[in-house]
Design a protein around this nucleic acid. Structure first.
Lengths: 336, 336
DNA sequence: AGCGTCGATGTTAACGTTGTCATTTCAAGA
DNA sequence: TCTTGAAATGACAACGTTAACATCGACGCT
């Protein structure tokens, strides 16, 4: 099939709604309504228009429609990186909710970089997204003002700030840190270490952990994204700081898995010699040997709620609960 | 900050290029050019326009621009699911290449479902994407015709069909299967089993493996997406089929990791009692105990090449090599 | 001096759709 | 019969931008 390359889009121009209307023998606007607001048009006309669509091979131009109606049916979704498995259930649920309402998610990567976040948000706003869902918070005050002026609904997620830009669905990371501290102390582990990522939310959990313990702890900080390899390295660093370490709290299950692997490789038993607690309840965490004790967060619920809130605002409704706390729970398994 | 909810987009309407031009004291088109084609405008005018942009808080409307210029600077990227780690390096590289050229990637999930793929492609085409990159192949003949008629460049990836829709960057999955067969046979493993996903490309690798071995093998087929848990289950099934199994080929490193975990849990040594070979060279594969022998594919190269080819065609150039084979290599480690 | 050329700017007309208001038709109620 | 209203359709004008062509000096060249 020697397909034509380059600019020339083949002989005839693409069909527009004009062509459909002409073929169907109705006016332009009636053709438009038959396709987008069928309740306003008689059944026979709808059939004629749909036949004309088939005949002409018409593909609607959403650029034109969005421009005129100033509704793009496009929602911006911003994540630090696609490779952060943490946020996948959220994205999945968000996509599902939006999809069911005929909206499309436009994904962007911020790369833990505030200037990137700004540029990305500007690009999204330039495309006139109807709403924005961002994991974490919007850093730039300028962007906050912009979305406020343009009336674009925003949901910040996976955090629980006191002053959200607009709406927020998440949970308290410092509370997670305190809960992990309480759990490990309750289990009787005295010497606790921390293997943590360097992102903002992981640091909040760290603060919570320290507050809960009431003291500093040996800490290995690794760059994003968390991985098994970084977990192994982190345990090495921690054992150098305190060879008698009895437990390690981790900012991600990937790190926890690495810590376990490294511990076993060094001949330490888990949890008898070293207890390990993760965060996020990754898909593998219940199936490793030993299974991983971790913090369970309902990422899908975050995505679902965020999508519903955005959609409600797109319909012009007022959202009563603009701050939603989905909470968390410690999933007790074998490793701690 | 009691932010205004609902429809009302605050008092004044958003600034348009008209406003910018008026404030800058130039004509509309000069303002447009100052922002998009600075080489055509004098430096002093550019400064005046940029000052006016600041003063008015202007945010360009890409819907309008794209409509008129019929170039959206939007590329569709279709993956089976976001959760398939396999394709992340490809997406990452693709995003980077497009980003550098001022293009944006619009991601869509097909969910291993051909009707979904159709609907998604139609939605993308309706938004007038300038190009399409899809992992796997375009199934629908109707969509193939559409993109052909509209002159939208398409790159199919991660496969190497004889008749691509337009362009293709990938490798031969049957060749992978044969290579794995040769490798395992060369190592002297007699009784070989297969733990595989049910997607099309995994089945191609299966065929290659069988062709290479010249016989059927015990097979455990698991549903997508592959995971550690499914790998554990698969090994259980395989050992039921052949308790004396000596090696397992897997269609993903996640499965291989699960097979290893299950084997160790059953007291089998890897690779002495059971050899395991994965596919994809995931980030963790070089760091597990034992390290995973797997098939390395340069996913980033696929994304890079795909992006470059799309961009070239967007610039109106003709791409000489429309079929690119990036090949693969077996990464020999401890598990096989 | 006259010519073409180039750089800088402007005028006009779209791109393809939908919001708004107007018109027609027909059935039901007074 | 006339009014009223709803259902169905249409005419027109946008939405905000850029392509295409036009204009107008200034400059260098023959």
């Amino acid at each position: 099939m020697p397909r034509q390359q380059g600019a020339s889009p083949s002989s005839t121009k693409a069909a527009t709604l004009h062509d459909v209307a002409r073929v169907a023998g109705v006016s332009l606007i009636t053709a438009s309504r038959a396709l987008t607001k069928p309740s306003l048009v008689s059944d026979t006309t709808i059939e004629r228009v749909q036949a004309a669509v088939q005949a002409t091979g018409y593909i609607p131009n959403l650029l034109a429609g969005s421009l005129k109606s100033s509704r793009s049916r496009l929602i911006a979704g911003l994540v630090p990186a696609l490779s952060v498995a943490q946020f996948l259930p959220t994205l999945q649920a968000l996509t599902d909710v939006l999809d069911a309402a005929g909206y499309q998610l436009m994904l962007g990567q911020m790369r833990y970089d505030n200037s990137r976040q700004d540029a990305l948000l500007n690009a999204m706003i330039s495309r006139r997204v109807d709403g924005i869902v961002v994991t974490g918070l919007i850093g730039s005050e300028a962007v906050r003002r912009q979305v406020g002026q343009l009336g674009i609904p925003v949901v910040e997620t996976w955090d629980l700030p006191e002053n959200p830009t607009d709406m927020v669905v998440g949970f308290s990371h410092t509370a997670v840190g305190r809960a992990v501290a309480a759990y490990l102390v309750g289990k009787g582990y005295g010497r606790i270490g921390l293997a943590t990522g360097d992102d903002h939310r992981a640091q909040l959990r760290r603060q919570g952990l320290l507050a809960g313990l009431g003291r500093e702890v040996p800490t290995a900080t690794v760059p994003a994204p968390s991985s098994l390899a970084l977990g192994r390295r982190a345990l090495g660093e921690l054992l150098q700081q305190d060879p008698a370490l009895r437990a390690v709290a981790c900012s991600a299950d990937q790190l926890a898995q690495g810590v376990v692997v490294e511990a076993l490789a060094r001949g330490l038993r888990v949890p008898e010699d070293l207890a390990v607690c993760g965060f996020g309840n990754a898909d593998f965490s219940a199936h490793t040997v030993p299974t991983l004790t971790t913090v369970r967060v309902d990422g899908a619920a975050i995505g679902r709620r965020a999508g519903e809130m955005i959609l409600a605002r797109c319909r012009g409704e007022t959202v009563p609960d603009r701050i939603v706390d989905v909470g968390f729970a410690i999933a007790q398994r074998e490793s701690a």
